[in-house]
């Protein structure tokens, strides 16, 4: 049993995976320095040869490399969850970067929480083809609008939470042809509807590479939608007015 399982996923990132793999290892080293035990998982979904050899090069430093053939980011993460031995689990995509202190701060934050909580970084810093800073909104912040989550996603999948939460709520499958994607958004809805709280770790940041044709852009161009979730119905208990205290 480890304190945290760190998962980096790759498929065709090729050499741009290198900064991501380096940031992955730097954040893990920082976590270990802070006394956390870490399981590192390198998940490759039907990769090209170069991406695979790069992942292998980094995995030899300590970690498990696993090859899968899903062509689906959600299913890859689910496969990682199956192999996870950490109490917590954290995901990184093979073209994004963690900040050095992300794991340490997220775990410390989660340990302080009394309720089941999913930790998100305060900011996503988009680069390469987009210059923006995306603010993650804490579910308990006054500006959070519950109804908006049915139409707009608040948080992406690069969160940290107890591995058990992912076992209970695995990511749904993408169906590009049928027009259903955004498995991270659907996962946010399902977990939130189940009473798990999405919180922001103050002053933390992740770096998201926006490539000319990212999966999110492809999903948008494909006119994809989020699947129906537990909070799609107006009758979902999550919309029930709070019960008056006797």
């Amino acid at each position: 049993m480890h304190d945290i399982t760190c998962v980096i996923t790759g498929h065709h990132e090729r050499r741009i995976a290198i900064p991501s793999l380096r940031s992955f290892q730097i954040a893990i080293e920082e976590a270990q320095k802070a006394g956390l035990t870490v399981q590192a998982l390198y998940l490759l979904d039907n990769p090209d040869d170069l991406t695979q050899s790069l992942f292998e090069r980094y995995a030899v430093a300590g970690g498990q490399l696993k090859l899968v053939d899903f062509a689906d980011q959600g299913l890859v993460r689910n496969a990682a969850t199956e192999d996870a031995t950490g109490r917590y689990i954290a995901f990184l995509d093979g073209d994004d970067l963690w900040s050095r202190t992300w794991l340490v701060e997220a775990v410390a934050f989660l340990k302080e929480q009394k309720r089941r909580t999913i930790a998100h970084p305060a900011y996503n810093y988009f680069f390469e083809n987009q210059a923006s800073i995306f603010c993650h909104v804490d579910q308990e912040a006054p500006e959070f609008r519950l109804d908006m989550l049915r139409l707009v996603n608040y948080w992406d999948a690069l969160s940290v939470c107890e591995t058990e939460i992912h076992r209970e709520f695995p990511f749904g499958m993408r169906d590009i042809e049928g027009g259903f994607a955004y498995e991270d958004w659907a996962w946010n809805c399902e977990t939130l509807a189940a009473g798990i709280v999405h919180k922001v770790v103050p002053d933390t940041i992740l770096f998201k590479r926006r490539q000319a044709m990212s999966q999110t852009i492809r999903a948008s161009a494909n006119k994809s939608m989020i699947r129906r979730t537990a909070m799609s119905s107006y009758s979902s208990p999550i919309f029930a007015p709070p019960k008056a205290t006797p």
Partner: peptide, 16 residues
């Protein structure tokens, strides 16, 4: 590449 594109960085707050 993290520094690019070298233009003012737009802040996005979903609820706003």
């Amino acid at each position: 590449m993290v520094a690019l594109p070298d233009i003012p960085r737009k802040v996005n707050i979903p609820p706003a």
